[in-house]
């Protein structure tokens, strides 16, 4: 256990020094605030900068608070996930390349606590950042659009956190198994492209980790099927645990590839 806390402190210090601890939560916060604001002031923004001919009338649909929170999530699904996958793709692979790994690997560390220290730092930064961002978004939505059912909101947040855990374990696994460049490609494919494929072909099945953000939205709206949702959550959690265990295995196997 002392092993783990030592590795965690090292990891924490590194992420403080490269400012990840600061800028990743700030990005989520920025999108969380700007999404309700731009949606609310869209008519005025268009009127002042849109260069519309005189007398143009737009019919803007009435947006519900739930829809605003969902559009925040869809921002996170694109830009946020890009930040997470590309920002953390090197978390293990980089150490092998730069030689930090040799300093670590000569010590009798357990690879399990090595991977777990990285996992805990990623969870703190990414999930902490998203929670802060969504709460800010909820606050602004509350002011501008109206209240959201608080029970449904927590269900929505919990589901989205399960999805984030899955994303984090994909990134961790690919970083342990491949070099930084390949790891970023693999995690972008499995996080961003897999979602598009799941959205295109996914009408044929209902149980998949990539459907969790969609289920989160359904929970928020209050109409969702219990069975496929529970199965998706279960499969996502199992897949995350398997991927994290796999990351430990590959971190150990790739020791020989470390640059000395």
């Amino acid at each position: 256990m002392s092993n783990f806390s030592f590795l965690f402190q090292k990891e924490w210090r590194e992420n403080v020094r490269n400012f990840k601890i600061l800028w990743i939560p700030l990005v989520f916060l920025l999108f969380g605030i700007s999404e309700p604001l731009t949606n609310y002031y869209l008519p005025q923004i268009l009127a002042s900068v849109g260069n519309m001919p005189e007398g143009t009338v737009f019919q803007f649909p009435e947006l519900s608070p739930e829809q605003i929170l969902m559009s925040t999530i869809s921002q996170y699904q694109l830009i946020g996930m890009l930040v997470v996958t590309l920002g953390f793709a090197g978390i293990i692979a980089r150490e092998r390349k730069s030689g930090t790994a040799t300093l670590l690997y000569v010590r009798p560390i357990s690879y399990f606590s090595y991977v777990n220290s990285k996992l805990l730092v990623m969870i703190t930064i990414v999930i902490g950042g998203v929670i802060v961002g969504i709460l800010a978004s909820l606050y602004y939505t509350n002011i501008l659009f109206g209240a959201v059912d608080i029970g449904a909101f927590f269900g929505f947040l919990g589901t989205y956190i399960a999805w984030l855990l899955f994303v984090i374990s994909i990134v961790l696994f690919s970083s342990a198994a491949f070099t930084t460049g390949i790891a970023s490609t693999v995690s972008v494919v499995f996080v961003l492209f897999a979602q598009i494929i799941d959205a295109l072909l996914g009408t044929y099945w209902t149980i998949s980790p990539w459907k969790l953000p969609m289920y989160a939205g359904q929970i928020l709206n209050g109409n969702f099927d219990m069975t496929p949702f529970v199965w998706s959550i279960m499969i996502t959690l199992i897949a995350s645990i398997v991927l994290i265990a796999g990351a430990g295995y590959f971190a150990k196997r790739n020791v020989s590839k470390a640059k000395i």
Binding site: L22, L26, L30
Partner: peptide
């Protein structure tokens, strides 16, 4: 808040 966050970034 948006302006402040952008400035910090």
């Amino acid at each position: 808040p948006i302006i402040i966050i952008q400035l910090i970034l």
